[in-house]
Design a binder for these strands. Structure first.
Lengths: 335, 335
DNA sequence: TTGAAAGCGCTACCAG
DNA sequence: CTGGTAGCGCTTTCAA
């Protein structure tokens, strides 16, 4: 089924059918109707591949994320998609699962598909790959939630400040043995959150101890991290998690070891995903506006968008959300 | 950047480049190397749209689901994708959010993309749409997790039996006021789980009371459902949820109303998503093997697959997973 | 307002 | 083993 058959049936040329299908309003109304009828009678669906090829654009955006299982990424996807849809764009998601191999593969796929824009929200960015990408001339947005934005695109979440607020708050209510739970992909120099943690805690001087652990992103990873932490002999009064997703895993391990939250240990998350309200106890966390991120990503990818060009630079400041997973440090506890 | 430029650079014809890129092993090794070099020097990425157009196939599968936020669907996606990848296929997901409009839109999009196969795992199947789809000649698998499989494709989860097992178990430990929490999309005649619930409970006769409620799929929906249920005056000894996702919402509402689980009320989920182990208390649920579903979907879509054709029909039987969210009915409680 | 025709980049068939 | 070339289905001038 193709344009030609439709054209034949409607008694017009393929050019005219194309015009009708693309809402080019030079077509006489009666002609348009004939075409429309033929289209529906034949149950015709334009071949998008041919369209993209001939037209040189796909009205499709690509989004590559590290872990769709983590609601943070899913939320960004949904928000990007919502914005895209209302601008008549589509978005294709790809999940790397933190694998560099998958990352390469999906980037190439996106290039192969000739997406009109690509958003890369991952932690495993390889410089070589970035070159390959920029070489492709596809408008791209990099956003590494575990690090500072690579290419200035006007989105900046102040992770450092967020962590500071968490630590300050905990310190204020008496916590002096803090632990940070990160995930592997956020280790190393790129981990803004972890760095911020270490620096902030260090600034309190000797009387405040800290430790960091890491495992995979996810429930299991959080649980393992907590287990390792507790097995290490360090007895934290509070555990700061790199995200809510892992925090839920941490909560479980604490529960199983008979530790009360926040009675014995306070726990904080990060992102403020829906689950952070529904887990037990509900998590104290930092709200990261995924909707805004999706919106900004769209706007920076699609030039034609940005209706009233809102400054292009948006710094998202932390908003601490206090819930039941945190409280005052246990008064007297052996060191 | 296209085949021709690569061909020119390598000093061969486009046909040869194409052969190399497609691993057609008639190419002399030295020639292949020249081409490979040109490809990487030019940072060439084949245009997949052109490829699909010319080749008549995309090696891409489409998957449409109701609610990616519900880990059940995400798991099916990941499993389908894993299987697809290992067979050199790609999969594109689309989320309807239970909206019929989105459903139509995405089906058309998939047809437009000329996917080589389409899996539709939703609750909002419209007969008209199904006609449109079958007209498109794209191999399709329908699988409605809330109903019985439409097109026999060899996957069948025995939902009825699963619900029966849950109810029997609860009844055996003394529960006699049961409630079912469903979601809107699973209402009506298509809701196998709800029907099974009603019928099973009814079979216990007068001494066992029951009620059903429904709300949106999700944490909030579960919570609302629980709230409505409790506000109705009915005092269930156990709440059977259509899936784990909603069950977590139910748990929260019970907690906020000061009801203990399972002390005052037992709660069950369905699917056995990861979260069911991590919520509090961990959910008694029924394990639904998403990995198998993804695998079967792939095999029924891609004929060339199914290496040792495993019978094509797989009935997945329920496996009850007992955890802490259920227990004996509270001994003496006012009716 | 409409039609004819030249590509878009690639595959696959036919020769050689 | 390699090249030439006819499409794949659609968009987009250019003319009429």
């Amino acid at each position: 089924m193709n344009l030609e058959e439709v054209a034949k049936r409607a008694g017009v040329s393929t050019a005219t059918v194309s015009r009708v299908l693309n809402n080019i309003d030079v077509v006489k109304n009666s002609t348009r109707n004939k075409v429309m009828r033929a289209v529906s009678e034949l149950n015709y669906h334009p071949n998008l591949n041919a369209r993209a090829l001939a037209g040189g654009k796909s009205r499709t955006l690509g989004l590559i994320v590290s872990n769709l299982e983590n609601p943070f990424f899913l939320d960004v996807f949904r928000s990007l998609e919502a914005e895209a849809h209302s601008n008549n764009y589509e978005v294709i998601v790809a999940n790397t699962g933190y694998s560099a191999e998958q990352m390469v593969k999906h980037v190439r796929l996106m290039i192969g598909r000739r997406v009109d824009g690509l958003a890369v929200i991952v932690s495993e960015l390889d410089p070589e790959l970035m070159r390959e990408l920029s070489h492709s001339k596809i408008p791209t947005v990099f956003y590494d939630p575990g690090a500072k934005p690579r290419h200035a695109i006007g989105i900046r979440v102040n992770y450092r400040r967020s962590i500071e607020r968490i630590v300050e708050y905990l310190h204020a209510v008496g916590h002096n043995r803090l632990a940070f739970v990160g995930h592997h992909a956020s280790l190393g120099p790129i981990s803004e959150r972890e760095k911020a943690f270490v620096e902030t805690v260090s600034s309190y001087g000797e009387q405040t101890e800290y430790r960091t652990v890491a495992d995979q992103d996810g429930f299991d990873g959080g649980r393992n991290a907590a287990r390792k932490l507790l097995a290490s002999g360090f007895e934290p009064t509070a555990i700061i998690c790199v995200n809510d997703f892992m925090a839920v895993g941490v909560l479980r391990e604490l529960r199983e070891q008979g530790l009360r939250v926040p009675g014995d240990i306070s726990v904080t998350g990060f992102d403020n995903i829906k689950l952070s309200e529904y887990c037990y106890p509900p998590l104290t966390t930092v709200h990261i506006p995924r909707e805004q991120i999706g919106l900004m990503v769209f706007q920076s990818l699609v030039r034609e968008a940005a209706p009233n060009a809102p400054g292009r630079e948006l710094v998202l400041d932390p908003e601490l959300v206090l819930r039941e997973s945190t409280g005052a440090a246990p008064a007297a506890r052996k060191r």
